[in-house]
C-alpha cells in the first residue's frame, strides 16, 4: 500500500544525466528525507514526482497512478524560488490557490497565517525571503493534500524563519492524513523529523534507511553521515 513508488527512474537532459536508477518506496503517514548537496538531482526528482517533467526511463506511481491530473489533486508541491505571483497579498493567495486545490482547508489556512505571522497587507514581492517561504508553506499545508513535497524549504532562509518553518512541520503535519517528502542539504535543524532517509549524490541513491537504524549503526547523526557519504 504505497503512496509513492519509484522504480529504476532515469532523467536525462541534453547535457547531463540528472537521475540514475532511482528507486523509492514510500508508505503513508511517514516523513521521508532526501538528503544531498545542491546539484545532486533533488529538485529534478521532486519535479518528476509533482508531474512537471516526464521521466526518461523508469516508473513513477503515486497512489498507484502515473503523475498527471489525478495525482496532482492529492499532492502539493513546495518548489524552489518565488512560486507565488508577486502582486498577490495574503487574501489573494488564499482565494486563488484555495480555489484550485480541491481539498483546501480554509480554517487551517487562517490558523497558519496567524501561526506563521504572515503580514496580511504586503504583496508577495514585498516580503523577505523568509516570509515568502512561510507563504509557500501556508499554501502547502492548507492544500489538504495527502502527499506533501517540500523541495529545500530551508535553504537561504534566515534563522528565525527556519525555526518557524520547522516548528510548523512538527505542529501541523498530521501523520494520519499526510506523508511528507522533504529534500534538504541543511540537515541538522530538521533531522529529528525524518522516519526514513535517502542520501542522494550526483543523481544516485548512495545510502538509505530508517533514521534511527542509521544512527544505531553508524553511531552518528544524519548530518555527520551525510558529510561522510556525500
Amino acid at each position: 500500500m504505497s503512496i509513492l513508488k519509484i522504480e529504476k527512474l532515469y532523467k536525462k537532459f541534453p547535457k547531463t544525466v540528472a537521475l540514475k536508477n532511482i528507486s523509492m518506496y514510500l508508505t503513508p503517514g511517514r516523513c521521508y528525507g532526501v538528503l544531498g548537496p545542491n546539484g545532486s538531482g533533488k529538485s529534478t526528482l521532486f519535479r518528476l514526482i509533482a508531474g512537471l517533467e516526464r521521466p526518461s526511463k523508469g516508473k513513477i506511481e503515486i497512489f498507484g497512478e502515473k503523475p498527471g491530473y489525478e495525482t496532482k489533486r492529492k499532492l502539493a508541491y513546495l518548489g524552489e524560488g518565488d512560486t507565488v505571483y508577486p502582486w498577490m497579498k495574503t487574501h489573494d493567495v488564499i482565494r486563488f490557490y484555495g480555489s484550485l486545490y480541491p481539498f483546501w482547508n480554509h480554517g487551517l489556512a487562517q490558523n497558519l497565517v496567524e501561526f506563521l505571522e504572515i503580514p496580511r497587507n504586503k504583496r508577495f514581492s514585498e516580503l523577505s525571503k523568509g516570509f515568502r517561504a512561510r507563504v509557500k508553506l501556508l499554501i502547502l499545508f492548507s492544500s489538504g493534500a495527502e502527499l506533501l513535497l517540500l523541495d529545500d524549504p530551508l535553504s537561504g532562509i534566515d534563522p528565525a524563519s527556519r525555526e518557524k518553518i520547522v516548528k510548523t512541520l512538527y505542529n501541523f503535519w498530521n501523520p494520519t492524513h499526510q506523508t511528507l517528502l522533504v529534500s534538504t542539504h541543511i540537515i541538522s535543524e530538521i533531522e529529528t523529523i525524518f522516519d526514513y532517509v535517502y542520501f542522494l549524490s550526483k543523481g544516485e541513491i548512495v545510502l538509505k534507511g530508517e533514521a534511527d537504524d542509521l544512527r544505531k549503526r553508524y553511531k552518528k547523526s544524519m548530518d555527520e553521515i551525510a558529510r561522510e557519504v556525500l
Binding site: G29, R30, C31, K167, Y170, P175, T192, F194, D195, D212
Partner: peptide
Amino acid sequence: LAKKMKVNPNT
C-alpha cells in the same frame, strides 16, 4: 508528546 518534544510522532 510529539508536539512538546518537537519530534516526529511516528518516533
